[in-house]
Design a protein around this nucleic acid. Structure first.
Lengths: 206, 206
DNA sequence: AAACGGTTTAACCATATGGTAAAATTTTAA
DNA sequence: TTAAAATTTTACCATATGGTTAAACCGTTT
């Protein structure tokens, strides 16, 4: 029973995750979630009182999973270059497995910006900044990285890793014309992005 | 009459554009489009037989507008660095005015990848490659840009310019914690991205 | 002015959707 | 074993939605 309960709740959650990621909040249908979970609609509402609640549960978990990917960047004992590679590697691996996930998150966050604040609530920014500056103070100085350029660099790194998956259908369609293969492109992406990013940063040294 | 017709059709089109961009295909309601256009639902179906048809009309126009932004990169008589700056400038200006547009396109294309092929149908890729290689053959050689690295570079440039707007709510929420202002960040984005990109490319020179 | 063609409206319709009530079934505790 | 508690199902409801029909309106032509 507790076992079965977990099975049922788990099944519902997995089905809901799939459907929400695939169709978004608006496009998802409670009936479809129920069907995929192998139960009926009323049971869905028994476990999660409303579509909104179910969505919130799914979204929160997924967003946190995604956020976790960024954590090692702060506590690993690596050089800046190694850290950049590590981030690209982690992020790319993750998105190869769940390619629709980033667009889903961007989309739902954009439709309800409040959501992101809930997920970030427990993020300690003062601590993160301190860690980064302690670990890489010398490199920051050498490459003139400060509180103005750091956001530019970090969003650029995020962009370079996430965007290809978000724009996959467009990129694939263009590549098709030019005879390029998307999977090969992705395979080389980590190496390219690491070199590209680190070279760009290094060249800030006067 | 023909005048009024155009006015009405125009009003419908503008209202539909706003609603679709704001809510997406699934979230948009025909009633809301009618309300915003100041007409009723039946008139909507008189001009555009179905929601699908209306959406297609809106999407096609918008996607083509977006695509046009890329054109000057190929026929302007500029150096590679100038071209990069020019692209970032154009794209950023455009998205400052229509910040929801890129996410809308990415989203709908992802839900129906066929759409992108329709828009790209008349794109002459052989010609584009030729132009680029003629105009920048020397720079391509110097910086070791070939048919394998060119896609990496171009998607990186697109990513760096588009991603900040697509992820705006997330970036804003994080910036808020760190005391950074999104608009100031965007103001500096063109300069930063141009330097970042061109430095990364230049450093490919051995 | 009457007929005509395009335009607009009000009133509908069928269906899909999120959600609920209450009965039936199963599980747990006594 | 039996009563209670939890779980699952059947049958429903109210509302929203995309779409249609038929009549009214209005400017143009004859």
């Amino acid at each position: 029973m507790t076992e079965l309960e977990k099975q049922t709740e788990e099944k519902i959650f997995e089905a809901a995750t799939d459907v929400f990621i695939e169709k978004g909040m608006d496009g998802a249908r409670m009936q479809e979630i129920a069907d995929r979970a192998g139960i009926n609609k009323a049971l869905l509402h028994y476990y999660y009182r409303s579509k909104e609640k179910l969505f919130d549960a799914v979204f929160t978990i997924i967003a946190k999973q995604m956020l976790k990917r960024f954590a090692p960047v702060f506590d690993e004992n690596l050089t800046l270059e190694e850290k950049i590679r590590f981030y690209y590697q982690q992020q790319t691996d993750f998105m190869k497995r769940s390619p629709r996930l980033p667009l889903f998150i961007l989309n739902e966050v954009s439709r309800n910006p409040q959501r992101v604040k809930n997920v970030l609530k427990h993020l300690d920014h003062t601590n993160l900044l301190k860690i980064l500056e302690e670990q890489h103070g010398d490199e920051f100085a050498r490459y003139k990285i400060n509180r103005e350029t750091l956001p530019q660099i970090m969003t650029s790194i995020a962009a370079m890793s996430i965007f290809p998956f978000v724009a996959k259908p467009i990129i694939e369609a263009i590549f098709e014309k030019f005879g390029t293969n998307f999977n090969e492109y992705i395979e080389r992406r980590v190496d390219f992005a690491t070199a590209f990013t680190y070279n760009a940063i290094k060249s800030r040294e006067k």
